[in-house]
């Protein structure tokens, strides 16, 4: 059983839900992914699931892993997230389920995603609040992957590409997925969403873009943020 906590209650809708799966959080095990999709899918007219692309390897490279090993692990993590998501959608009877589980890399085929990514990169370079949020989130992810080793600005420079590549999903879901309204669903609040939702940023969300935090009721009760098993890419907090 899950609950959905909308960032703005007035923005509630049932149009399109975009589910972000993270290779860097232990909760995204096959059973959790299946339960989450089974819970969300009937509540919206359409559903898509997104998984980080090759950029996921940057967090491991920044944490000191050799690139070839980082890429290998990121590719394996992608498969571990994708397969249960496709199976869940297939079992729910969603036509052509594999089309609805997409890596950020595949999204580059879409002109709306590419245009949004250009805007996101520009915002990172020119908007101090977006930049700060991106770097804070990157530092946290790399710090967890680095197992307590200090994270340098140079490490963040490498891995921040990972966080920036996700921004279009937070700002332009309606355009990229062809919906009037789209809610991006993630398991926790992030400073990036807060910065985008704030009207003071140069990065504005498209009309119809909303956000919500999804929680499993069991974890609300016992207060744990993680499952006990390791993540697909073993980074704890994101």
């Amino acid at each position: 059983m899950f609950t959905l906590d909308w960032l703005a209650e007035t923005a509630r809708h049932r149009d399109h839900v975009l589910v972000g799966l993270s290779p860097q959080n232990g909760r995204y095990k096959p059973e959790y992914i299946r339960n989450l999709i089974f819970w969300l899918q009937p509540r919206f007219r359409s559903i898509d699931v997104v998984i980080p692309g090759f950029e996921a390897a940057y967090t491991l490279v920044a944490a000191g892993h050799p690139p070839a090993q980082a890429v290998h692990r990121a590719r394996r993590a992608y498969r571990q997230l994708r397969n249960p998501a496709v199976r869940a959608l297939a079992d729910l009877g969603v036509p052509d389920p594999s089309r609805h589980v997409t890596s950020w890399t595949r999204l580059h085929a879409d002109a709306a995603y590419r245009a949004s990514l250009i805007r996101s990169r520009k915002a990172y370079l020119t908007d101090p609040r977006i930049r700060r949020a991106c770097r804070e989130m990157t530092a946290e992810v790399v710090g967890n992957a680095a197992d307590g080793q200090p994270v340098t600005q140079c490490d963040i420079d490498i891995a921040v590409r990972y966080v920036i590549a996700e921004i279009p999903l937070l700002t332009d879901g309606p355009d990229v997925f062809g919906a009037d309204r789209s809610v991006f669903v993630y398991h926790r609040a992030t400073p990036l969403v807060a910065a985008i939702a704030d009207s003071g940023s140069i990065l504005t969300a498209a009309p119809g873009q909303t956000w919500a935090i999804v929680s499993q009721e069991e974890e609300n009760r016992d207060g744990h943020d993680r499952t006990g098993t390791p993540a697909a890419i073993p980074v704890s907090a994101r």
Binding site: F54, A57, A74, R75, T105, L107
Partner: peptide, 9 residues
Amino acid sequence: AVSERELPW
């Protein structure tokens, strides 16, 4: 760095 099936044509 990704499977060829993931390439964005």
